[in-house]
Simulated assay, not measured.
Amino acid sequence: MQLLSLFSTLGLALVLGLVSPAAFADAGHDHGEAPATAAGPAMPRFAATSDLFELVGVLDGQKLALYLDHAGDNSPVNEAQLELDIAGTRVPVTRVADGEFQAALAAPLAEGVSPVTATVVAGKDTDLLAGEIDIHAAAHAHAEPPGRRSALVAGAVAAVVLALAAVWGLRRGRTARTQRLGGAA
């Protein structure tokens, strides 16, 4: 019975030591929704906006997907012409659909921040958009997704608690069986 008491005390100390203090907070201590976690490293991207248009570019290696929308209602810009310049180099752009374009870079972008400028012509509207794309491949390639460590700790705590519950259940059953049979044999 002393062994069970020792396991119970150690288990409780372990659980209380590993549980985050935030787990004890009540509804009045909510800090809002947790930020979304990425499944893997995010592809580099840029955004350039003006009063008329919003342009988003997503870089996948040397391929660039571009999305052009109206700033007011986020609808795709129909029949637009787009000229793109990244870090002082003109990048040829091909229209795929309304508001969607693609481009291929002649060479990979250098690490760091590169300026992006785009000229948009859509009907009577013409606008110049500016933004930046930040390339830091080494920093993003090995980044561990947030929350992974706390999930591992929670799993370890759950395993310890289940093991302690199993030991306690076995001890309790053995003690009850011994008392029913009239003591030790």
Rank of each mutant, 00 (worst) to 15 (best):
G123A: 13
T37W: 00
A110L: 14
A27M: 01
A139P: 03
Q102Y: 00
A106L: 06
D30K: 06
L12Q: 06
A22L: 08
L181G: 14
G169H: 06
A25P: 00
L10C: 05
R90P: 00
G88P: 03
T89I: 09
A154V: 01
A165R: 06
L55V: 05
A104R: 08
E79Y: 08
L10Y: 05
F7G: 02
V116Q: 02
V56P: 01
A151I: 03
L164D: 12
I135F: 09
G183V: 13
D51N: 15
L6G: 04
R174V: 12
R90S: 10
L66E: 02
A71K: 15
A25I: 00
H70R: 15
V19N: 01
G40D: 10
T175W: 07
D73R: 14
L4A: 15
V167P: 02
A130G: 09
D127E: 12
H31E: 06
G88S: 06
P146M: 11
V116P: 02
G17I: 04
A97K: 05
L82G: 01
G32Q: 07
F24R: 07
H142N: 12
V91L: 07
E100H: 02
L6M: 08
L64C: 04
L82P: 01
A141S: 15
L105N: 01
A25H: 07
F46V: 02
F53Y: 12
V56I: 12
V19L: 09
L66H: 01
V58M: 09
P35M: 12
I135N: 03
L128C: 03
T89L: 11
G17V: 02
H140S: 12
K63L: 06
P41W: 05
G131I: 04
R45S: 14
S8K: 11
L152R: 11
L12N: 04
L59T: 14
V19Q: 09
V56G: 03
A48C: 04
V121C: 08
A23F: 03
R95I: 03
T49W: 01
E54Y: 08
R90I: 03
Q2P: 05
D134H: 10
G155M: 03
D69M: 13
R90M: 06
P44T: 13
A27L: 04
A138C: 04
D30T: 04
A87T: 06
I86L: 12
H142Q: 13
P92M: 05
R174D: 12
G88L: 09
R149C: 00
H142T: 11
R149Q: 08
A48D: 02
G11T: 14
L6E: 15
T94V: 10
E83H: 05
E83N: 11
R180M: 12
S5V: 11
A110M: 09
V161H: 02
E100W: 01
E33K: 04
P76R: 15
L162F: 10
G131Y: 01
R177G: 10
D134K: 13
V77C: 04
V116L: 06
L170V: 10
V153K: 14
A104M: 04
V167Y: 13
R174K: 08
Q62F: 00
A139V: 07
G123E: 06
A137G: 07
V19D: 00
A48R: 00
D98R: 06
R149M: 06
F24N: 03
E144S: 11
G40E: 10
G112A: 10
A71I: 05
P35Y: 08
P44D: 14
E33W: 04
V161S: 11
H140L: 08
A166I: 11
D125S: 12
V116E: 00
P115R: 15
D26F: 01
L68E: 00
S20Q: 07
